[in-house]
Amino acid sequence: MTGTDALQTTLAAEHAAVWIYGVLGGQTSQSSQPALYDAVTTAYVTHRSRRDQLVRWVRDADEVPVAAEVAYELPNAARTPAELKAIGLQVEQRCAAAYADLVGRTTEDERAWGVNALVESAVRQLDFDGDPTDLPGIDA
């Protein structure tokens, strides 16, 4: 796998994250679940920005950015706060794994971006009731 492949893989993860957080946003109440609403909204904005950055890098490499799927399968019904958090946690864990992989396959700006994204994603997992691990992105 090349650095560009890793960018594309991470982009695919970001496409999924943006789509899923869009769904979660529609299922979260700002008035009755303010903390969860904030976490989902912040995550959506962050992943959209990361997606756009990855698209730019892939285009800079003269490749066509991987497209988003029409829809993504959710692991549960996304109705209760616990279900919404479980989905958010899964999204962050998968993105963290993609970022960690990206770090290992790139250098300089792209690697630095991947490290920062991994750190942010690891902390965001806690917002969704994730447990801390020794090596986020690798062991969880």
Binding site: Y99, G114, A122, V123, P132, D134, L135
Partner: peptide, 8 residues
């Protein structure tokens, strides 16, 4: 990088 994330 993962170690930094664990510390964070």
């Amino acid at each position: 990088a993962a170690m930094a994330a664990g510390v964070a």
